[in-house]
Design a protein around this nucleic acid. Structure first.
Length: 881
RNA sequence: GGGGGGUUAGCUCAGCUGGUUCAGAGCACCUGCCUUACAAGCAGGGGGUCACUGGUUCGAACCCAGUACUCCCCA
């Protein structure tokens, strides 16, 4: 096969991806090998591939492909998350577009629409991942709301309830008055807005003509005030101890309480306390046992309890009450301020803190092993800096509110009768039986199940367990199936730092609780993909490139390389398309190099000396760099591993090695290459392809098959990762000198405007016995010399340069500008003198000589003597000009 | 308000145990080349007060303290 065509990414990608699928290379079943396992962070079923997924999944694919080549039984489990809130919102919107209101549907009808939606769109993102080259075991694809996975979630709820870890209680939630549901903290977007700060005075009940002024941005909540709070140290209010304030309009007498929670500097230092409508006030209320008056109804309108403005919207009321209070003489002043207000991510309604009955999971006990095992490095966070954040969070963990006022999700298995009894169990029948023990007359139709579903994370925290064995929750880890026992604990988890607590920490908790073992060993935290201006990429900003278009434009390989070139672990990634361009250029380079090699005419003939030494050199270079690359991988320095690969291929292989062994043209005709060199070169190419494969799976597989005839299962995806044994490090050092020598000659050509085609002569001032001639032919070839000889003395009319201890001359009759040369030499002497001086200062410092390590001192001495020698040589050159 | 980071070349980032000619890489830029694999390329080159101030040390981009700016998480 000749490589003639330019590389066609789209065609090649489809071809090989299908081939890999057909040959079942992604498939994994337990066997005698060691497993290497990754479970995918399941993307939302609503999701379409965005740049964050691209980054995340590319990293996972690189890890899994390399593990596969290293001989592990590599298993990457894919799947999707039902994402209760996001999905329900999508479905609600879709129905609304069709003129159907959720409130007009029964739960069953709505869920049937939701499942239809899931079946239609739920798999899109996984199909998109295939375009990226993701080598997941698709037969293992899971969905968090599959019957048996859901059952596991319910089992866990019942189990934790039995263990008294789950309880029901009243808590403040983020209420979306438009969506009529509680939303989680992460779905609240805090925006800075311009507001008015109202200063309102309340009469002190016990003292005539005494007032206390509070400041608030939400005067409509005054109707629900049940206290006024000041700082205990605040001199202004000390005399009000034990007194009461009178809430305007409603004329309610409320206590004045003292708490150091108050910021004395803010407003007047006096805070109105509305436990029903502010989380901080609520906490104060709990602490000081205050009355709770809920004045705002779920739809955001004033409730009966408010007594005034009943049925009117809270924002209308804000204006009205401000006016009314002003007329009553209670408003002292109004200031403009900026403050942060929470908005619902999906309805954009202003979030209303609201008290409601919710289910909670106690976190203090279960979170212990999750903290310990991260602190003792049993589970590694990469980069390590996240351990601090993790620790802080785990030490201050709050109970987890696990109920959501939604329909799409696992419904809470709690059942209520008509007398206020509650039982937690799986089925209605069980509930009936249990409830009847205290309520014998209970009729089945009077039993109702909790309307709420569980938080999405309450299902995804079981992900690393249930993808392998959903029944394990029931059977216990000891009796789990073969899959779970083989693959668990998994190896690496690749995810975003913003879900370190929501998801990662909780998986660890569940892992220890239900398997008695960590769910994974390493957690690689990726950064957020941002645009060039540092803004998070998002649909609403319209600043995110369409990933599939990028793939079409630069090839999946190009995009993969582009993403990983600039993605330090844990740091945000400033994405720019030019990185993909660089990625594309890289596969193009590899393609062309392969084209060159494949195009050689091969004959059996004598091997040129230059080729022979180049092979020895590159053999060692490859091994040396592979060592470096493996080391980067072991530390999860992905960008570094990629860059080392990039330079090994581009600089060492293409720019140096191939240029050395490439046969010359004689009379316009390319000469054939000797078989020995050709075979070695193909061998190198094969190893390089293997090293590149995790980054660029498609182009490497294509070349792998073009460069040699292969049988059907001989694919690079399952090829063995190369070994790295450096046999001769001295040759590497020698080559560095050779490379610099060649660069110097090229530099002379450049500065003197000498064509690369014009042959030059080169002399090295040295005794024959002191110098190796190993690379002479290489220097001759790459510098395009007609002569390279040793000389005992300086060569007249020449440009000279020094590499290490070697002094070289390039005779250039007529084109030597003495003044220029003098200037150049003088500069170089000065530089070296300066350097020598700094070393000498160091060496004459008694403290340095006394305290520094002996090796270091020896090194400094050598630096000094080397510099002296160099200065001497340069000075000789200068004087002889 | 509490916690965790970051600040090194025009851009994106390395710099791992304080010590090698340590001030680096890639990209971008400049100069010259359409040299028979590749102009998506080749050869060569310029470019930084390591945010600022102080301290520790024989020695600091690196350790410590403070300041400024900035990002993230939690409330």
């Amino acid at each position: 096969m000749e490589i003639t065509k330019p590389y066609n990414p789209t065609e090649t990608e489809n071809k090989w991806y299908q081939y890999w699928l057909d040959k079942k290379f992604f498939k994994s079943t337990p066997d005698g090998r060691k497993p290497y396992t990754i479970v995918i962070p399941p993307p939302n079923v609503t999701g379409v591939l965005h740049m964050g997924h691209m980054l995340n999944n590319t990293i996972q694919d690189v890890l899994i492909r390399r593990a596969r080549m290293l001989g592990f039984n590599a298993c990457w489990v894919p799947g999707t998350d039902h994402a209760s809130i996001a999905t329900e919102a999508k479905v609600v919107k879709l129905l609304a577009d069709k003129g159907i209101k959720k409130s007009d549907l029964t739960r069953e009808e709505f869920l049937s629409h939701a499942w239809d939606w899931k079946d239609k769109y739920g798999g899109i993102i996984l199909e998109q991942l295939k375009k990226l080259g993701a080598s997941c075991d698709w037969d293992r694809t899971r969905f968090t709301m599959e019957t048996d996975l859901s059952e596991a979630v319910i089992d866990v709820f019942i189990d934790l309830h039995k263990k008294k870890q789950i309880y029901r209680g009243v808590r403040m939630v983020n209420w979306d008055p438009q969506g009529l549901t509680a939303v989680s903290d992460e779905e609240v977007i805090h925006k800075e807005v311009n507001s008015k700060l109202f200063f309102v005075k309340y009469k002190i009940d016990e003292i005539a003509d005494e007032w206390i002024t509070i400041a608030t941005t939400r005067p409509e909540t005054i109707l629900g005030d049940t206290a006024v709070c000041v700082h205990p140290e605040d001199e202004r209010y000390k005399h009000l101890k034990g007194k009461h304030a009178v809430i305007p309009m409603v004329n309610r007498k409320v206590p004045i309480i003292f708490d150091d929670y108050i910021t004395m500097e803010f407003g007047t230092g006096a805070l109105k306390v509305t436990p029903a409508h502010d989380i901080n006030d609520y906490n104060l209320g709990v602490k000081h046992k205050l009355e709770v008056i809920d004045t705002i109804a779920p739809n955001g309108k004033m409730s009966e309890a408010a007594k005034f403005y009943v049925g009117e919207d809270r924002f209308t009321v804000r204006k009205k009450i401000a006016k009314d209070l002003e007329e009553l003489g209670h408003v002292v002043k109004i200031e403009d301020i900026k403050n942060k207000v929470g908005y619902s991510e999906r309805t954009d309604a202003v979030i209303e803190p609201k008290l409601s009955m919710q289910w909670f999971l106690k976190m203090d006990g279960v979170s212990k092993p999750a903290l310990e095992n991260v602190l003792n490095n049993n589970i590694k966070l990469i980069p390590e800096k996240f351990v601090n954040t993790y620790k802080h969070w785990m030490e201050n963990v709050h109970d987890w509110c696990i109920s959501r006022q939604l329909w799409w999700g696992q419904r809470i298995p709690a059942w209520y009768d008509n007398k206020g009894n509650t039982v937690v169990c799986k089925t209605l029948a069980e509930a009936e039986q249990q409830l009847r023990t205290t309520n014998p007359e209970l009729r089945t139709e009077d039993i109702r199940q909790d309307e709420d579903v569980l938080d999405t994370w309450f299902s995804s925290w079981l992900w690393p367990i249930t993808v392998f064995d959903p029944k394990a929750i029931q059977t216990g880890f000891k009796n789990a199936n073969a899959d779970l026992k083989y693959y668990y604990p998994t190896n690496d988890l690749v995810t975003a730092p913003e879900i370190l607590f929501f998801w990662v920490a909780r998986m660890i908790i569940a892992g220890y609780e239900y398997c008695g073992e960590k769910p994974f060993t390493n957690v690689y935290l990726t950064g957020i993909v941002r645009d060039k201006q540092g803004r998070k990429m998002s649909k609403s900003l319209g600043n995110s490139p369409e990933p599939l278009e990028l793939i079409t434009k630069y090839g999946a390989d190009g995009v993969r390389v582009g993403m990983l070139l600039c993605s330090p672990a844990g740091n945000d990634l400033m994405f720019d398309e030019s990185h993909c361009e660089q990625g594309r250029n890289f596969w193009n380079k590899v393609w062309n190099a392969s084209k060159l090699i494949k195009g050689f005419e091969v004959v059996v003939k004598e091997q040129p000396a230059a080729s022979k030494v180049a092979i020895t050199w590159f053999e060692n270079k490859l091994a040396e760099q592979l060592e470096v690359i493996n080391d980067h991988y072991s530390k999860y320095r992905m960008s570094d591993a990629l860059m080392a690969t990039y330079k090994l291929v581009w600089d060492d292989f293409c720019a140096w090695y191939l240029e050395i062994i490439k046969p010359e043209f004689i009379d316009g005709k390319a000469q054939p290459i000797d078989k020995t060199t050709y075979d070695a070169t193909v061998g190198f190419l094969e190893n390089l392809l293997k090293i590149m494969h995790p980054w660029m799976p498609f182009v490497t597989e294509e070349i792998w098959h073009l460069i040699k005839e292969r049988n059907e299962k001989d694919c690079i995806i399952v090829a063995e990762w190369p070994k790295n044994e450096v046999k001769d490090r001295s040759i590497l050092q020698m080559f560095d000198i050779v490379a610099e020598t060649i660069a110097q000659v090229r530099s002379i050509r450049n500065s003197k405007n000498i064509s690369p085609k014009q042959k030059l002569s080169l002399y090295l001032k040295a005794e024959k016995e002191n110098v190796s001639t190993l690379f002479h032919d290489v220097i001759i070839k790459l510098s395009n010399l007609d002569k390279f000889e040793l000389t005992g003395a300086k060569v007249e009319n020449s440009v000279s340069f020094i590499v290490k201890q070697f002094e070289f001359f390039v005779p250039l009759e007529g084109s030597i500008n003495k003044e220029e040369e003098k200037e150049r030499l003088t500069k170089e002497i000065e530089y070296n003198k300066g350097f020598l001086k700094s070393v000498q200062i160091k060496l004459s410092n008694e403290n340095f000589v006394a305290k520094a390590k002996p090796e270091l001192i020896a090194l400094e001495r050598k630096k000094a003597s080397d510099a002296e020698a160099k200065i001497k040589t340069l000075q000789e050159q200068l004087t002889s000009l």
